[in-house]
Structure formats: C-alpha cells, structure tokens
Write a protein that binds this DNA or RNA. Structure first.
Lengths: 227, 227
DNA sequence: ACCTGAACACCGTTCAAGT
DNA sequence: ACCTGAACACCGTTCAAGT
C-alpha cells in the first residue's frame, strides 16, 4: 500500500462500455457515419475515432478502405425488402424490387454514389440480383438478355439515385449545370433552349418510374438479343 | 562587383521554358496527368508540380478541385466528333454520336468515373447534348420524352464506360465481384448460377450496342411519355 | 494582379512495439 | 492474436508575405 487514503475506485470510462472491436461493429459505425455525414464521413480515421481506437486497429478486420465501403454498402442494402409473394404480374413485382432498391439508395446520403464507385458484390446485392433474375425469367426473355438486363436496370436506378441525392445535398456540379442551362441562347443551342424547362422537370420518383417503363418495354420488345 | 571571376551566365532552367500559368495550361496539364495516372493523378498538388509551381498558385485560375475536374472532363470531350451530314436515319446517327462519346470516355482512364462524379456541364457537353436532342427530334418523340431521354442515354453510356475501364485497370471491386460470382452455389442462387457465365460475356462494345438498341426501342415504343 | 512557402486540417497505410 | 502510437506519404485549402 502506497498510502493510507481510502481507495475510492472510480471508473474512468466516459462511455457506457467500449464495444469489442469486430467487423460488424466497424461496418455498423461506418454506415452510421455515412448516414450522418455523407460520403466524406466514411473514413477509416473517423470510424476509428467513433470506436475509440486508432485507425491502424481496423486493419485486423478490414483490408482497406475499399473493402469497408463495399461492406457498408451491402449492409445498407439489407434494408431492401423483396416481395416473396407471387401476386401480380412480373413487371409489377420487378418494379417493386427496383423501387425498394432505389429508396434504400436514396435514404442514406452518399450511398448511391458508393454503389456507382464500388459495384456491389455482397450477399445482399446477390439476393437482389437473384430476385430480379427470377422475375425476368417469368417473361419470355432469353437468359442472355436477362443477364445483361440486370446490369442495365440496377445501374440506371443507381444513377438516378445519385442524381437525386446529389441535388438534395448542396452539390456544386448540379448547380453549375442548372446555371449553364439557364444561360443557353436559342441561337447556339436551339434544341436545348426549347426543352430547357423540361430537362429538370419531374421528381426523382417520376423520372424513375418512367425510365423503368422505357427499359422494360425495350427489353421485352427488342428482339436482337445478345448472341 | 564582388569578385574578379568572369561572370559566366548559366541558365538555371532545367526545363525549356516555364509556361505562363493560365486556365488552359492548368486544364491541359490536368488532362495529361489524368491520362497518364488515372483519377488519383488528377490532384491540385500534382498539377502544380507539373507546372513547376505550388498548389496555391492554381487558385487564381480555379475555384477548387471540383472545378478543375469539370474543366478537364469537358476538355477531353472536345475529342467527340459529331456527324454534321444528314445521311442515314436518325437512329444510326444517334448511335454514332453515342459511340463517339463512349470511345472518348474509354480512352482516358478515369474519365468515365469523372463523368459520373461531376455531371458534365461544359460547352462540349452542351454541344453533344444539342446534337442528341436534334437527332431525337427527327423521331416522332415528344419533346418531354426527348429531354429525359438524353439523360437516360448519356448516363448509361457513361456507366458502361466506367465498368469497361475499371475492368481494364486493376480495379479491386470488379475482381471481387467475379470471385463472388464464381463461388455462387446453385442451391442458394439458382438463377444467378444458371446465368453466371453470361453475366460477364461480351465486350464493352457489344454490350454498349445492345443497350443502346434496347433503350431506343423502349423510347420509341413506350407510349406513356412524361406529362 | 500574380505568385509563393508555410501552415492547417485532414487522408490511407505501414510498422515496430506493446499486451 | 489483438491493439496502439508514431511515422510516412500524401491530400485540398487558406493566408500572410512577397513581387
């Protein structure tokens, strides 16, 4: 004993408890950060700080930032609910799947951008892909056509979601585009000028539904399928 | 005179001549860097080093990195040649425009990704957009449909180009996807398993042509146009 | 008006050292 | 096996100081 003072044991913890480090905890913290701060919030250093540790500690569970991004993306895609019932025609149900995918991408800021950067390959994306392929197989579509169609459909949904959420955030590039479009002269760009109001018309949802209809019509109507 | 030594005047220049700083020079250096080193090569510090100055000097001519990216992108799009002749049907000529756009995006590594990140708004993109709208107006398409179609078409071409060039580069995310797909079991994902070979089949060019046909068929065939 | 170096506040990643 | 701090090699951006 070093002294006679009563040993008052005081917890030095400022947090309830330090969560044990694990892949899941890291991914959860990452998704949380992404939701709160958007894409720039999803950094190894910030995730580490959130978990009360150093960035180097994360490398036990994760190879690099890219992998974390993949994992966070797929984690978020877990929220996409798939229709298991066989009610309604395949077109209607496919639209529902795409809408669910679309909404999840739009819910977290930066998630859509993430999906464009690191093409999704986790279990939840597989689940969604399988569901889309199953629905497409109900049409008279060739297998090869369906295989390429999944890409076409998901890619475009992702792209609209990106546009959608970058206009919600104060994205510089979309503001620039609007400014440029407003300054277009009828002499130089007659067609753009004539349609300049309609190019930004419609909500994300409206454009989304329209695009899916166009794609599905094209897919079922165009016979030159891939060899 | 400090000394009697002959004053031998020796140029300290190691380069032919220091190019005067200007917006154009900066953008040109940026595009050069992008072509050589891809997206990570396009940084303000690297451009500055290339021009034998400090990063801070660039801010006289450029607001921020985002603007440089926009400018570099549009500069590169200057290479997209548009068909001015009225020969062939509009579908064929539209396809040519999109092919030219596609090839330019594929030529410089990282350019397609840049086009996804910062939606293009420079004069060259306006030129391309105007040309597409002009061709679409030759069809019996509604103006509103055409306005949304430009987006749909260019976005998708950009997305394929991104996929294409990220598979040329040693992109981690596409390798991961291929691995995951190869490990899929028929029990869990029967449809994916059945089509797993066809999902990666075809060259970028083939997939591109197929997709454009699908889109154009959908656009001309699907009557529910945007209100 | 233009250019500069230094500073600030960040990054991802590695590594030797601890437990 | 896991965690850590410090270091390395980068970023974009700002600012006071020079010309």
């Amino acid at each position: 004993m070093k002294s006679k003072e009563a040993r008052v044991i005081v917890s030095r913890r400022t947090r309830p408890a330090k969560a044990a480090l694990s892949r899941d905890v890291i991914v959860a913290a990452g998704l949380d950060l992404l939701t709160r701060e958007g894409l720039p919030g999803l950094s190894l250093r910030k995730v580490a700080t959130e978990l009360d540790t150093g960035a180097a500690s994360l490398y036990v569970y994760i190879d690099n930032l890219g992998e974390l991004q993949s994992l966070v993306l797929d984690q978020a895609l877990g929220a996409v609910a798939l229709p298991d019932q066989q009610t309604g025609d395949w077109r209607r149900r496919l639209k529902d799947v795409l809408i669910a995918y679309f909404h999840t991408l739009c819910e977290h800021p930066g998630l859509a951008q993430l999906a464009l950067m690191t093409l999704p390959s986790g279990p939840n994306m597989l689940r969604i892909t399988e569901s889309i392929l199953a629905l497409l197989s109900e049409s008279r579509m060739h297998g090869a056509t369906a295989a390429w169609a999944v890409d076409l459909l998901t890619l475009y949904v992702t792209a609209i979601a990106t546009e959608q959420s970058s206009s919600q955030a104060h994205d510089t590039s979309i503001e620039r585009l609007e400014q440029v479009l407003a300054a277009v002269t009828p002499a130089e760009y007659p067609h753009i000028y004539g349609l300049r109001d309609q190019m930004f018309s419609g909500s994300g949802g409206e454009r989304f539904e329209w695009a899916v209809d166009v794609l599905l019509t094209g897919l079922t109507e165009s016979h030159p399928s891939p060899s």
